[in-house]
Design a protein around this nucleic acid. Structure first.
Lengths: 343, 343
DNA sequence: CTGTTAGCGCCTTCAC
DNA sequence: GTGAAGGCGCTAACAG
């Protein structure tokens, strides 16, 4: 129909290749390659002409072909347990952001907390990513190590000897939470654990136990639970029935679910129950009352993971590093003085 | 060090290629390819042997090389304005899920609401994805069309003649909201608009105007605003000062931010101000009081988009389709009867 | 049923 | 400064 020759309007024509550009510019493909990539060892005016022609033709180098010869795909791979969890979103955004500034793509995989799916995705990615960020991996150490032998791997929210990892140091936050509750007069504290097999969950429990001992707080742990709003709602009744006056949750979502059910039942927070979350993943003030929580920035985790991966890719022989993100208690309105325990 | 020959423990050896498998199995690479892919036209026992050898060697076909010859990358590309927005996460999860069941990868790009970034990402993806899902694209029609000429494109949360799109029919939801407020006695309603240039935002305003007219409600629109919790918080004071008794927000996050500020100032919702959100993106009960909102399932949007893309990829000549997700008002506790307007 | 042979699009020595 | 040629790992005709 249209008599316009412009390539933008061409409907189904094959994408231009380096050959087309070479032909149109009257040079060899080697020159096109050089002109477009480095621009070195080519006459400036040739470079200009080639680039001009390439632009006119709407030429975009095939990353696939380039990857085949260079051996690099120019992609990050990120695998995480649940894209819809607000803790992971900023992490992903941070990795993606780093990728963008380095002109890298990001392959994403959602394992849905399933180790088998995680492994499947990871294996698919090995041939299409230059490096993998495994977030809160549920894989056994051995599998992760095997994977790391095939492609650079960085762990986020998990530590493993011999691999780069970015983790949150949960100790200060959880210690602070216990101290905070103890100072408010709570002597019995309930911890609602998250998913089974979570490395960070174990770290949290460890920190909690240590802190409980030194502060003479009696700690009870329940779990595992799904780290979701519903997960929190579902245990709420049991929590209330248990007579505990203070609860620390694996993450903010569970804490909010718990709060939500409390409000429904007319249980006053923090009057009758003090609630502590973890992550500070939601905007302050989204919960009523504002949630006392343990901050651990997941965007930092993502930033560091990307940085580690970049470093690993450029120097595969370097000593594995562990980067740590601090945590801290952020006291808000969901915690208050202990009252006389109910019978 | 280790004398074990097993490939899992080999530290930095090059990944096995089809040649290695062929050599180890004593067949040609063509046979390996067939045995691993279809298994047809190869002796069953040969297939078995090849597969066995491949497994032993830890061989994974290079998707890059395969892509170069087949012309398909086996990847979806998804570009969205903000990964951390809870409206988009389920959409992404749905696309990723569809991709997983079809053994496809997912390249992800976060445009941060920036059309230039969106275009850059899209162009990078054209050479590495078989199809693109553009979510809430901020690109001008012409750019989108140009892109669609190079690679299959499906629009999510936006419509454009000539392209496949998955959209939410916001009319019923917004009409319902206006009716609902009118029935509660509200005669003046404020609409807090979202980002400028949002297709869905325009659709919402259109629906709102139509509904306002037929229900004799005086509608005022303010905007644009950032579709975030803070965006809602920041206009809250102005909203309160304006004396409006009812507000409809572009999305739930803004509504929650608004509610949050109201609570802070001791303004009763819905006693003094009725608040309506949009998307129903957060778990019910996360807000206090529970947010009346307009449901429009973004996971459905993602599911449909993936489906459209799959269809488009298998038949590029097919007539473009538009799939529609319904919307509806979900009345909860953040809306109530109008009171006498303040001076 | 199996092997040989072309490339896919590009980068990269090498010659010129 | 530029071109010719050799693969990267794989699939897809062709031959046997």
């Amino acid at each position: 129909m249209a008599s316009q020759p412009g390539p933008p309007s061409s409907p189904a024509s094959k994408a231009a290749t380096i050959k087309d550009v070479a032909a149109a510019a009257g040079v060899s493909i080697a020159t096109v390659s050089r002109a477009l990539n480095s621009g070195e060892r080519v006459l400036p005016e040739t470079v200009a002409r080639v680039r001009e022609v390439a632009r006119e033709l709407g030429y975009t180098p095939s990353r696939t072909a380039r990857g085949l010869v260079t051996g690099r795909s120019a992609n990050f791979g990120v695998i995480l347990p649940d894209v819809t969890n607000p803790f992971f979103a900023p992490l992903l955004a941070a990795v993606e952001s780093a990728a963008q500034t380095h002109d890298l793509g990001v392959l994403i995989g959602d394992s849905r907390e399933d180790p088998a799916a995680e492994l499947r995705i990871a294996q698919r990615m090995t041939s299409q990513a230059d490096g993998l960020v495994l977030v809160s991996s549920r894989l056994p150490d051995s599998e992760i190590l095997a994977l790391a032998a095939r492609v650079p791997v960085v762990l986020a929210n998990r530590r493993l000897d011999g691999l780069d990892s970015a983790v949150i140091d949960v100790a200060p936050g959880f210690t602070g939470a216990v101290e905070h509750l103890a100072a408010l007069g709570h002597t019995r504290v309930l911890y609602l654990a998250g998913p089974a097999g979570s490395w960070s969950g174990q770290a949290k429990e460890r920190a909690l136990h240590d802190a409980a001992r030194t502060h003479a707080v009696q700690l009870t742990t329940w779990g595992p639970h799904r780290p979701t709003f519903d997960g929190g709602r579902q245990v709420a009744d049991e929590v209330l029935a248990s007579g505990h006056g203070a609860v620390i949750c694996y993450d903010d979502l569970m804490a909010l679910g718990l709060q939500s059910r409390c409000a429904e039942r007319g249980v006053d927070v923090p009057g009758e129950l003090s609630v502590v979350g973890c992550d500070d993943a939601l905007p302050e003030g989204m919960a009523r009352p504002a949630l006392t929580t343990i901050e651990g920035r997941s965007d930092e985790l993502g930033r560091l993971a990307a940085q580690l991966l970049l470093a690993r890719m450029s120097d595969p022989e370097a000593e594995p590093r562990t980067e740590t993100v601090p945590s801290r208690l952020v006291p808000r309105a969901s915690t208050g003085p202990a009252t006389r325990p109910r019978p």
